[in-house]
Simulated assay, not measured.
Amino acid sequence: MTPVPPRRFGLVVAAALVAVLGTTTPAAAHGGEAPDGTDYRAGVTGVTPARPGLTVRVVEAGARLELVNRTGRPVEVVGYSGEPYLRVGPDGVFENTRSPATYLNRTLSGDATLPAKADPAAAPDWRRIDDGTAARWHDRRIRWQEPDPPAQVRAAPAREQRVLDWAVPLRDGTEPVEIRGTLDWVPPPDPYPWWVAATLGFLALGAAGLLAAGTAAGVRALAGVGAALAVGGVAAIGLTVGRELDAGASGVGAVLAGLLTGQVWALLTGLGALAAGGYALARRPAADFALALAGACLALFVGVTNLGVLDRSVPPAPWSGGLARLLVTLVLAAGAGATAAGVLRLRAAATRPTPTASDVDHGVALGNKSS
């Protein structure tokens, strides 16, 4: 490894980690105000009476409903007071600015202040909000709105059970239609085993930083930490893509667009961890610095922002909660472990004498021999 002045390295690492800590806010923003997880599983059971070309599903871990209308005629979503709320048809998606639901549904909590013009008895005032034939909206009728679980859940919290059967009314012309679905309580998992696994992974990878960098064992340790960080990067990309799929993105183009607009920080973090892992595997100069910086970004931008997955039964992803928790655990262990290993190796480099030319040749020979 090419020697670098240790004081400069220490200052660079400190400044980089401070910068990472100070920029964690963008990573917490997820498209569509999707929750980090929930213990309520919402699902659509059907549209009654059936309408060919009209499809509805729950997205964002139950935070929103998505309606796609390919019938060729407009369909209205009815608001909480029986008023027209949304109109979805071949000419686009419109919202009624007179409907209270227009404002209440803009946030997941539904605590918006209604403007004076919000009057469900007034004639609709339609405003186009999208040119497509799909609408997504928060709907209080499909969620449990209270902070505490219902009485039957409090009586038996360890048992999966039905909370409610819900219905959201539509109008197809003058004919009433309903979206019907269910909301179930799913007992939350025990996060303790996942925290133990993440901690053990962190300790194992961090301990690799204690091996002397100039020895064959140190070279192998660097490669091992790099491989683990690359695995963490793959897990981070999987989590990020999963969020986009759960948010309703379909097709490669839609997924990429969502990643680049709503989750670019998480995506870049995963790609950066992959690159830094490969950098360490190739034993490139400044690999220790790359491990420390990329690991810190991975742990903060993806691991910390997805901690809710560890103690929630329904993740914001189109797969099981167990797989989502495994991915978060890999991210936490790889990110924190790589950071510790990189910092320890940098610290060791800063405290040992500057190598002579013969030492450098010997270290290169060891590296070539181990490869």
Rank of each mutant, 00 (worst) to 15 (best):
N69E: 06
D184K: 02
V328N: 00
A151Y: 03
V331F: 00
R143C: 00
A275L: 15
W126V: 02
A29H: 15
E76P: 08
G209Y: 04
W126P: 00
V18R: 06
A333T: 06
R220S: 07
A121Q: 09
V153C: 11
R87D: 03
P188L: 03
L332G: 00
T113H: 12
V56A: 09
G321M: 03
A63L: 05
G214Q: 09
Q152R: 12
A15D: 12
D311Y: 14
I179W: 06
A348M: 10
R220N: 07
A230F: 10
L86C: 07
V309G: 14
V13A: 15
R162C: 03
S358G: 14
V231P: 03
R143S: 01
V77C: 08
A16C: 13
G233P: 06
P115I: 10
L211E: 08
Y192Q: 08
V225I: 11
Y40G: 00
T356H: 05
G242C: 01
A29I: 15
A217E: 05
Q161N: 07
P100K: 08
T305K: 02
A116G: 11
L256Y: 08
V241G: 05
A338E: 07
A151H: 09
A50H: 07
G110R: 00
R325Q: 01
D190G: 08
G342E: 00
V231R: 08
R41I: 01
P150G: 07
G248E: 12
P187T: 11
W194F: 08
L104K: 03
V68S: 15
E33F: 14
R154G: 04
M1C: 07
L67M: 13
A236D: 10
P26Q: 11
A236E: 05
G201I: 06
L67S: 02
T24H: 13
L245N: 03
N96H: 04
S81G: 09
A28G: 15
D190E: 11
R347V: 15
C297S: 13
D39H: 03
G72R: 09
T55L: 09
L108C: 01
F301I: 09
R87A: 10
R136P: 02
V177M: 02
D131Y: 14
A112Q: 13
K117L: 09
G43L: 04
A341M: 07
R64E: 09
G214R: 04
V168K: 03
V68Y: 04
G72N: 13
G242A: 11
V241E: 05
V364S: 06
A317L: 11
V44L: 09
Y192C: 07
V302A: 03
R283G: 09
A317M: 07
G363A: 13
G253F: 08
D165F: 01
V314F: 03
D91P: 06
R284P: 12
P120H: 00
T24K: 03
A299L: 13
P120T: 05
R347D: 10
P316R: 01
Y192V: 12
R41K: 15
L323H: 00
A135M: 08
A15N: 10
P355F: 04
A287I: 07
C297H: 13
T182E: 15
A122G: 13
W126G: 03
R154K: 13
A338F: 11
G367D: 14
W137N: 04
L222W: 04
L271K: 12
P157V: 00
G132N: 11
L366F: 06
T305E: 02
A204F: 05
A275T: 11
G46Q: 10
S370L: 14
A61H: 01
V163G: 00
